[in-house]
Amino acid sequence: MKHLIALILGLACGGACALAFLYYNPLTSQESLSPLSVSRGEQFSLMYSAVAGDSIVFTNDGESRTHPHPVKVLQLWEAPIRQTDVLVTMLRDGRNLPAGIGIKFSSRSERTRLLNGEAIVDSVWHVYLPERGTLMIEQSENYWSYLRDIVVPAHWSSGDSWRGNWRGTITEGPGALGTALVHGGSGVFAGIDFEAIETLAAHAWSATDGAVSVEGQILIEMPTGSAELAD
């Protein structure tokens, strides 16, 4: 009996040690330098609020922490789309003026490997920028740092919330330098392929309601010689 109890205690301790190592593993920390920060190309940014309540429409399976908005929006409860979120939001330019409408489809990815510090989400943006054209942005996002630095501490907190300043690049591919691929659809972007990254700046997060104050930014790099597109 004593050996059985010792074995169970050992298993529990070993499991806890392994999880602690995964959580504190410094090798899975987030890249601090954006792949586009050393680029010479023209760039423009699109900003949005990543809080569901600030969006035009946000929907998911209806059972997640983040509630759909508006309340009566159709929910994605069918099995093939149950692990997908859709966000429709107004995009603002660098001067904080309305620049366009963005629709983001995000699905949890089967390439997620928690052992490697990879909490992957496959997402695409369908963006309409009036008087300029349309874009599709495809990317793999890694939310491991976001989970580790914000979500887990919020659950540990006695107030079930997190407050602070967190900024990180969530884009992890499929571009060679860990960038998102942008495909121009119409207008001045028609037929052009370029790169982008998406960053999040979080200030408050609730364990019961999800993001409370989180801003997103899509930084898009134009191909060389197309500076007029970024205007």
Partner: peptide, 12 residues
């Protein structure tokens, strides 16, 4: 107990 720790790590 030590064997349990090793098994626990391996199981996770």
């Amino acid at each position: 107990f030590i064997i349990g720790i090793v098994l626990g790590i391996a199981a996770v």
